[in-house]
C-alpha cells in the first residue's frame, strides 16, 4: 500500500481483505437507500398533488444533491478499505485508517483488557471478521475490520498471548 506522510518510517503494513469493501458497500446501500427514500417523500407527495405547496425545485434538488454525495462516498469505499492497515511490533500493535482524516494508532499489548472478534451477517458470507482490541482508554481501542477468519483467529490468539506476557495492569 502507498506510504502516506503520516505513516511512521520502517513499518510494513498488512492490508485487510479487499472484499471488505463489499461489507462497507452493503452498509452504504442500506444507509443511502433509507436517506433517499425519506428525501423523495416531498417529491412524490408533490407529484400526486397532495402537498403542492412544497417548491418543486427543492423537492428535486435535495435528493439529487444527496445522491451525488452518496455516489462519491461509494466510489471512495475501495480506497478507504485499502487505507486500513495494521502492523504487529514487538511491544505494540499499530493500526492505520482514513484517507481524508488519517489516523495511526499504536496500542501496547500490555494495556490490552480483552479482545473481541465480531462477525456480522455479510462478514460471514464473505468469510471475514473484525478484531477489536480493548484497552482502558476509549481512544486506544484498536479496531481491525475485514480480516479473513483464519487471520482474525490467529491475530486474536497472538494478541491474547502477547497481552498475557506483557500484562501491565492499568
Amino acid at each position: 500500500m502507498p506510504q502516506e506522510p503520516i505513516d511512521p518510517a520502517g513499518i510494513h503494513w498488512t492490508r485487510v481483505s479487499p472484499s471488505y469493501a463489499k461489507v462497507r458497500m452493503a452498509g452504504w446501500a442500506v444507509g443511502a437507500l433509507v436517506t433517499l427514500v425519506v428525501l423523495c417523500v416531498p417529491l412524490v407527495l408533490n407529484r400526486f398533488g397532495v402537498w403542492s405547496g412544497f417548491p418543486l425545485w427543492l423537492a428535486i434538488a435535495a435528493p439529487a444533491v444527496v445522491l451525488a454525495i452518496e455516489i462519491v462516498r461509494l466510489l471512495l469505499i475501495p480506497r478507504q478499505v485499502a487505507a486500513i492497515g495494521y502492523a504487529e511490533r514487538e511491544d505494540d500493535l499499530l493500526v492505520r485508517q482514513g484517507l481524508m482524516f488519517q489516523r495511526v494508532l499504536v496500542v501496547p499489548y500490555g494495556r490490552m483488557q480483552f479482545v473481541d472478534v465480531a462477525v456480522g451477517p455479510i462478514d460471514r458470507m464473505l468469510g471475514l471478521c473484525k478484531v477489536k482490541l480493548h484497552t482502558a482508554a476509549a481512544d486506544a481501542t484498536a479496531e481491525i475490520p475485514g480480516l479473513p477468519l483464519a487471520e482474525g483467529t490467529r491475530l486474536r490468539e497472538q494478541l491474547a498471548a502477547r497481552g498475557e506476557s506483557r500484562l501491565a495492569g492499568l
Binding site: 506522510p5 481524508m100 489516523r103
Partner: peptide
C-alpha cells in the same frame, strides 16, 4: 508508564501544512 496508547491524526488542512 501510564501511556495507554498513542495516535497520530491529520486532516486535510494539516496535511497541506505538513
Amino acid at each position: 508508564a501510564r501511556t495507554q496508547g498513542l495516535s497520530l491524526r491529520q486532516g486535510p488542512l494539516a496535511r497541506r501544512l505538513d
